[in-house]
């Protein structure tokens, strides 16, 4: 489809397009998935290529001028919010950060994240992630802010705190994508969250039982797919998942601790009773 071929009635009001600045005289061709939960197909669109254009620019231009009902999520357009996750040539990417020219002469295929149910076009239903998030014991402390914490106490937390919840790590994780363990497995994003909570110097909750039982951390077999797609460079496997796995192993698979638990019951008697509090 080209811009002469509007699929929605609209009078041309000669909008001043971006191509006035940085126009290249060339066009970008994108094959975009159009469809819904029932299925669909790729439709090819062509739009003027502007210097430095990212996939999201092209998709929004197509939406405004050729396919008004093309469903796509986006917000900040600057890789801060994690809304515009999609699969580009099969790989989850932020559309706002993916330059068209990166693909050279290669065809560009854009589709929704497939580890979640597709709603329409480039939008899938990621609400499951928020349910998982709700189940994680929030930050819990008996200390009163302002805290005294030194840079060296908290510098390990800066990395997991960078997460923008694009859910691309969830999308690429084979435990979710291939094995559909959504009911038993929290996914990489929420190990990242658990990591900073567990490492925060002031936090007093114990999430190891939940990590093992509810969040299913044992399912992860550290293929590092999540780390590879993280748009903010969190070393999810090495810095979040492996340290948590080690702590769970030390707590539950250390014979001496196992015996202590048998004798005394769980540490602190209960699980802090803080799951929904905080």
């Amino acid at each position: 489809m080209t811009e002469e071929n509007h699929n929605v009635t609209s009078k041309a009001h000669a909008p001043v397009g971006e191509e006035d600045l940085g126009g290249t005289g060339r066009t970008a061709k994108l094959k975009i998935f159009r469809g819904d939960a029932e299925g669909g197909e790729e439709v090819e669109y062509e739009t003027p290529l502007v210097e430095g254009m990212v996939v999201l620019d092209a998709v929004l231009r197509i939406q405004a001028h050729q396919a008004n009902d093309l469903a796509v999520r986006w917000n900040c357009k600057a890789a801060h919010c994690g809304s515009c996750s999609a699969e580009i040539n099969g790989v989850p990417r932020l559309m706002c950060k993916t330059r068209i020219e990166e693909y050279g002469d290669e065809e560009i295929h854009v589709g929704p994240m497939r580890a979640f149910p597709v709603i329409k076009d480039l939008v899938s239903d990621v609400s499951w992630n928020y349910e998982v998030s709700k189940g994680i014991t929030p930050f819990t402390t008996s200390e009163k802010a302002p805290f005294t914490m030194y840079e060296e106490d908290v510098e390990r937390l800066y990395e997991p705190k960078k997460c923008i919840e694009c859910f691309m790590c969830q999308d690429v994780c084979h435990v979710l994508r291939t094995h559909h363990k959504h009911a038993e497995f929290a996914g990489p994003r929420f190990f990242v969250r658990n990591q900073w909570l567990e490492m925060h110097p002031m936090d007093e909750a114990d999430r190891l039982h939940d990590l093992k039982e509810d969040n299913g951390i044992g399912y992860c077999n550290i293929t590092k797919c999540c780390t590879e797609v993280c748009p903010v460079g969190i070393h999810i496997t090495d810095n979040s998942i492996i340290p948590l796995k080690e702590r769970v192993a030390a707590e539950y698979y250390d014979p001496a601790k196992w015996l202590m638990r048998k004798i005394r019951g769980r540490r602190n008697g209960s699980r802090n009773g803080s799951r929904n509090g905080g």
Binding site: F139, A145, P146, F147, T148, E151, V154, K161, D203
Partner: peptide, 19 residues
Amino acid sequence: VYELEQWGALFNRTEVGKI
């Protein structure tokens, strides 16, 4: 600001461990 810190927000620190 303190309330956010109370709820788990992290800020860069000074040399004496304050926000």
